[in-house]
């Protein structure tokens, strides 16, 4: 039974792929049960290839689910809608459009806003993500971090009820990633949109989220979940808080059990254990 108070509710969700070359059906996730509460920042972590991105694509409505139910505000998700917006791992910007042109692309595709309004609001959004002065720059002139800001601004401009983030900082260098995490929290605290964040970076998940869910290895399902009781606003120093490290240990151990390589064969001193 879907939880009525939940924003997003997944019950026994299974997703399958047909692999053309192997001519076989491939189960990406199976039996996923989870809920996202309104206004909550939920992060999903899991070993690579566990189907977490696949699950997010299903939430976005890009791919259908094979079994179970997936509802947003009690309605089944069947296709993409203006109530959700995705921030992609690869920025996916139109190279022939400027920053401004790319930021308005989301609302333009949805057809929900007049062009003048879109441009006015896009300029505010560009300022919010810290790209003021770059409105007329082309994506190829931007660094990776700046491209991801455009990616984020494009999603925010559609004013979704739920923000879906698919490892948006995974391709960035370590320092840029930390800065982006900090800024994402700042923006999120202003908008308080329900957010579903996919990552393989445990620290990132704990730092950002109200709650962290760990996926098992493929076919992925929820292994355990952890409430993150760290006060907000959080600055980057919280990452050295003893409580933070306790969470990190717990999640790391949980993921370790899921890795194909037995724990004792891992090189000593890998992630913060």
């Amino acid at each position: 039974m879907p939880d009525r108070s939940a924003k997003l509710s997944a019950n026994g969700v299974g997703i399958e792929y047909w692999l053309h070359r192997s001519k076989a059906l491939f189960t990406a996730v199976k039996g996923v049960d989870l809920t996202v509460r309104p206004g909550e920042f939920l992060a999903i972590v899991g070993p690579s290839g566990c189907g977490k991105t696949t699950f997010l694509n299903a939430v976005d409505g890009l791919i259908p689910i094979a079994e179970g139910s997936l509802t947003l505000d009690g309605r089944d998700i069947t296709k993409p809608g203006p109530d959700r917006a995705m921030v992609f791992q690869q920025p996916g910007l139109l190279p022939w459009r400027t920053v401004l042109g790319n930021v308005i692309f989301g609302v333009e595709a949805q057809g929900t806003m007049s062009k003048d309004e879109a441009i006015t609001r896009a300029k505010q959004q560009i300022e919010l993500v810290g790209l003021k002065g770059f409105e007329d720059a082309y994506p190829l002139e931007l660094s990776g971090g700046m491209q991801q800001r455009v990616n984020l601004a494009r999603a925010l401009l559609t004013d979704p009820e739920m923000l879906l983030l698919d490892e948006p900082f995974a391709a960035l260098d370590a320092q840029t990633r930390e800065m982006m995490q900090l800024e994402l929290l700042k923006i999120w605290s202003q908008t308080r949109k329900t957010a579903l964040f996919i990552t393989h970076d445990i620290k990132e998940a704990i730092y950002l989220a109200d709650r962290v869910i760990v996926f098992t290895r493929r076919p992925g399902r929820v292994k355990n979940e952890l409430e993150i009781n760290l006060s907000r606003p959080r600055d980057l120093r919280v990452k050295r808080d003893p409580q933070f490290l306790t969470y990190e240990d717990e999640i790391w151990e949980s993921i370790q059990e899921e890795l194909a390589v037995p724990a004792e064969r891992l090189i000593a001193g890998m992630p913060a254990a």
Partner: peptide
């Protein structure tokens, strides 16, 4: 046409006509 661009357009609910005019044709 880059698959990533198509995915972005579909994610924002773009119609086929819009995808053709704004993504495929300029590319």
């Amino acid at each position: 046409t880059e698959a990533a661009l198509l995915r972005v357009a579909r994610s924002f609910g773009a119609s086929d006509a819009l995808i053709f005019r704004r993504v495929v044709l300029p590319g």
